[in-house]
Structure formats: C-alpha cells, structure tokens
Design a protein around this nucleic acid. Structure first.
Length: 264
DNA sequence: ATGGTAGTAGAACTA
C-alpha cells in the first residue's frame, strides 16, 4: 500500500475543459482522478495530453452524452466498463456510459455518473432509482472480501437538507426527494462511508453550482458529488476537500473537484 | 419576467 491522493470531478465536457483539467491536475497533484460527463466518444477523448502528464487513462464514452473515465499514475488494472444489472435506457434498452471501474494503487476505483431523475414522476426518476439499487447490489459484492472500494462520482442526490442552498427552492424537485435519499442511504446502510463530509462539513458546502442566475456568486449550490468508501477504504482516509476555487472564472465546469487523501 | 447559462450539436436536447 502507498499514500494516494484521489479525486472525483464532473468536468462537463473533456474537450471544452482539457486546458483547465490539465492545469488542475498539475497543481492538485492527484494520483487518481475519476471523471464524469466527458461528453465524448472514445475516439474523441484527448488521451495523449493526459498521457503526457504521466497518467494512464481508461475512458468509456458512447456518444455526446455522459461518458466516464479514470486517470491514474499509480497503476490502472482490471478495467471494467459498466456493472452487472445496469438497467439501461432507451429503445432498444442499452446501458449508457455511466460507470467504469479500475484498480489503482490497490484501490478498486469506480467513476459513476448517476442518471438525472429530472423530476418527480418522470420515467428518468424510476431509471435513476433502479440504476442505484443495482449498483448498490454490485458494490456490496465488490467490497465483501475487504477490498478497498471507492465509489466516486456525481450522484445527482443531495442526501441532507444542508446539502442544498434552499430546501424551500427544491421542495418537490429532483435530487432531494425521499426515494432518492433512500437510494443513497442504502449505500451507507451497506457499509459505505461518505469520507468527505467529516473533513468538509456543512452547511453551505457544495460541489455543484448552476451556470444560471449567478448561482456560484450567490452561493446557491448543491452537494451532489461524493466519494463513498468501503470500510477498508474509509479507514485510510486522512483528509478531504472540495476545491471550490476551480469553480471560479471563465470556462469552469459547473462542478468542483473533490479530493481525498489516503495514508498507508 | 415561465427568463437566465453552458455543453453537444448544427435543431433541439441535456443539465
């Protein structure tokens, strides 16, 4: 085992964000990055520029939507695209590019982009809940033998009232509904731990701010990006932080990177 | 005020 810095970041298009991603990797010094919403097919992904920074890269992208990747400079083995039981979407029903796993520095990393339920009662909401239930089943199995597992990504759920800038605003909207929170809490009940919250407690601590209505400037955000660690992973967490500085300025993603430091 | 921004696209869809 080695000391490792891992991170998760919804980049909202790798092709439009590659300059900022490169600069952030250089100054953040992370060893492993789980990326979501690359919005690119594999053939469009800028592998070479990330290789030049010293990272091995596994990407899964089928079209202009979704897309997930894992970057690592501490090994990238046993890459797995998707998980058993992914309910899929569309006609014909097919798994979207929302999950990829790899073993990096002894950690089983997963980059997950949980479906956006859009609205209460929307068919996308049922898909989201089903997708999460299936992922939880698999995640429990991955961690059952004591393997350190990290489920990293954009969960599109704000599990606690303090995780949104206004519960009044989100009343009866997606991301805060009881079924979504139950789907998230099922991971905690299964033994996974939100390893960032103790090091970045709320209220007022978020990972996502809408591009519209000056949400970032008005501090109107949501905490929806999480690293959920299995017990053996959580035991090694020495620190964590949300890099809200990266949300600033022209050309920022609407999500901030979330960094977790592990010790031996 | 049923808006606003940003991404993929090259019109509308997604978030």
């Amino acid at each position: 085992m080695i000391d490792v810095r891992i991170a998760t970041w919804n980049v909202n298009s790798i092709r439009s964000r590659i300059d900022r991603v490169e600069a952030w990797l250089a100054r953040s010094d992370v060893d492993v990055l789980a990326m979501q919403e690359t919005k690119a097919r594999d053939a469009q992904f800028p592998y070479a520029r990330l290789h030049d920074l010293g990272y091995e890269v596994a990407h899964h992208g089928l079209n202009q939507w979704n897309g997930v990747a894992i970057l690592s400079r501490v090994g990238l083995d046993d890459v797995r695209v998707g998980f058993d039981g992914d309910p899929g979407w569309g006609e014909p029903l097919a798994a979207e590019a929302r999950s990829i796993g790899a073993t990096c520095g002894g950690i089983r990393m997963w980059s997950v982009y949980v479906p956006n339920g859009r609205a209460i009662g929307d068919p996308h909401m049922a898909y989201k809940l089903d997708w999460l239930a299936r992922l939880r089943e698999q995640a429990s199995a991955w961690a059952a033998d004591g393997t350190p597992v990290a489920l990293c990504g954009d969960w599109n759920i704000a599990p606690q009232d303090d995780d949104v800038w206004s519960m009044e605003y989100y009343l009866d909207k997606s991301h805060v509904s009881p079924p979504e929170r139950a789907a998230f809490n099922a991971f905690l009940d299964a033994g996974f731990v939100d390893v960032v919250r103790p090091h970045a407690p709320g209220p007022g601590v978020y990972t996502y701010w809408d591009y519209q209505r000056l949400a970032f400037q008005k501090r109107r955000g949501m905490r929806i990006d999480f690293v959920l660690g299995s017990p053996s992973f959580a035991a090694r967490v020495a620190g964590a932080a949300i890099d809200r500085e990266e949300r600033k300025g022209a050309g920022a993603s609407d999500h901030a990177p979330v960094v977790v430091e592990l010790t031996d």
